[in-house]
């Protein structure tokens, strides 16, 4: 399966970035062969809607599932619409490689609803600015 992991760097020994929409890289890892491809996250600096834009990139790279720290409600809805499975709980103390190994052992649970406490229809606004109105 093709697993997309949010990563601080572009190789498999890089640390995880727990942020979904604003991680610097996405690593697309073939969980059978451990072949991978790093794609820079063009949504990282988006003022608003980084999560949704990030999902577009992930879907265009044909990932079957996403492994990250936590996914915001908008991004979650987009991932669901694209039928991409979501796994949360990856830690930035871990490397991408270790996380994939853990994933294969079943360390991460599939998430069926967006993380609690974020309100509805909005991420937590980690963007540097709220886009001019």
């Amino acid at each position: 399966m093709k697993l997309c992991i949010t990563s601080a760097g572009k190789d498999i020994e890089s640390k995880i970035d727990e942020r979904f929409g604003r991680s610097p890289y996405f690593l697309f890892v073939d969980t059978d062969t451990m072949d991978f491809k790093a794609v820079p996250n063009t949504a990282e600096t988006a003022g608003r809607g980084a999560g949704i834009r990030a999902v577009q990139l992930i879907v265009d790279n044909e990932a079957d599932a996403v492994l990250t720290g936590v996914v915001g409600p908008n991004a979650f809805e987009a991932l669901k619409a694209a039928k991409v499975n979501v796994y949360e709980g990856a830690s930035e103390l871990d490397t991408v490689k270790n996380a994939v190994e853990g994933f294969k052992k079943g360390d991460f649970k599939e998430v069926s609803c967006p993380a609690e406490g974020h309100g509805s229809g909005r991420g937590r606004g980690r963007g540097g600015f709220r886009g001019g109105r």
Partner: peptide, 22 residues
């Protein structure tokens, strides 16, 4: 999708765009 400044649109594969964000 490219032009949306608030990144509110998303296109699942082969599907029409959907409005998700604000």
């Amino acid at each position: 999708i490219t032009v949306c400044r608030v990144n509110a649109l998303f296109q699942p594969k082969n599907h029409i765009p959907v409005l998700i964000g604000d």
